[in-house]
Design a binder for these strands. Sequence first.
RNA 1: GGCGCUAUCGUCUAGGGGUUAGGACGUGAGAUUCUCAAUCUCAAAACCCGGGUUCGAUUCCCGGUAGCGCUACCA
Length: 485
Amino acid sequence: MSAAVGQVRVRFAPSPTGYLHVGGARTALFNWLFARHHGGTFILRIEDTDADRSKPELTSAILESLEWLGLTWDEGPFLQSQRLERYREVAAQLEQRGYAYPCFCTAEELQAKRTQAEAERRPAKYDGTCRRLPESERQQRRSENKPFAIRFRAPEAGVTTFHDLVFGDISYDHRELEDFVLLRSDGNPTYHVGVVVDDLDMRITHVIRGADHLSNTPKQILMYQALGAPVPAFAHLPLILGPDRQRLSKRHGAIAVSAYRDLGILPEALRNFLALLGWTPPGQQEIVSLDEMIRMFDLQSVSRSNAVFDPEKLAWMNAEYLRRLPRERLVPLVEEELRSAGVLGASSALDRDYIARAAVLLQSRARTLKDFSGAGRAFFSDDFAYDPEAIKRFWKEPGLAELLEALRQRLAHAEPFDAVQTERQLRALAEERGVKAALLINATRVALTGQAVAPGLFDVMAVLGRERVLERLRRAAEHLAAVNV
RNA sequence: GGCGCUAUCGUCUAGGGGUUAGGACGUGAGAUUCUCAAUCUCAAAACCCGGGUUCGAUUCCCGGUAGCGCUACCA
């Protein structure tokens, strides 16, 4: 790739009217991958021209989510709200050159026209009242300080055709176009001005965005042409849908990137999963490292049909990543999870080495980080409850209290207190009493972890250590004796 | 309604004029076992419909249908 010519410049341009959702994250990811693949530049721009709906705190939340996903930007973030003068300047320029005109219609008038058009089952495009205003009339109304918007003078005939890198050739008849607003009557630009002017000023070479912008593209191309500017390449991405095949929205539950972080999802897992929504790497491998993704990413292999977001597959992928996590990354993540879940207090006596051993033991069956503080709670705190289901399943045998007490006494002298020795002692006891080892093992598991499901019992004992094991056996025997009468 | 786009297992997708239509998640069965997960084996599961082109279409073309998008002084 030659660096001098065609240096790739792409951007991600969210609007701070909500949190970064998975669809936006996927768009950001594809832009980022494209930039990295081509050794280009990834620019972040905040489209906050809608003063009413934009919230500054959402901007920082979006940045945070992008950083969490590892999608770092090379330039920006640029705020459109700080470039308003520039947009007005361009709008004025378009007006001077006859590509735009002032429109004095009020919101009420426009609404009335639209309603009537719908009633008559006509397309509800702007009727062009102010487009046909004589120049003198325009001067007159302006001098009266009547509020006005600036509209683009769309061509009345012809077709705009462009080549989309994902969708192929797209044609759009100009008769479908209306004279869309460039500048609102309060002087603020609309979306179309913001994108075109910024993409131009920022020398964007490839506009990679959601397919919901496909129909907007002809309008923007017309603006580039009116400005006598080169048109960038376009690549539209299929949309991400909910399980009901509707466009993803709050109704679908977790859609914000931050929600997945809170659910205990790893950023690399979410990133990998998102990459597979609409893009397939060559070969049949689905777990793809970042480096491989960058190397293999290609807009031409992006799908054209919308994709349903499948949380089940994400969960599977997260488990895959969790299992592969090296200890030095796993342990801090687990500690953080335990702390935020309140399992580990500030004054916890647990040392790092212990936490590490417990985390590694739990690692192979964890689906999310939440599992460490949830199902794994008993490894990090003495304050855990016996799961009613576990009791029902493994504590139904009579005489268990006495059996656990006997086990406690045997284990008190097991030396060393490791998986091999504890297993030997437990099996010996089971044989001595003529009960199946499984019965004792399962009952003990509930005693030690409160759960019906846990790692291998003897590994659990080895990690917990003699002191905790004996104490918990005592507690369980007590509990059973009290309940079973 | 108008315009645009899309259409392969439940889901994500590969493929492509002649294939046993491939993989992954999920689902079912089995192996293993100390519970569960993991792992291994096996199984069920798809080319939207109708025309056309062709010796032959799931693949190419047209139409229909369905879904999604746009249709704002939102982005």
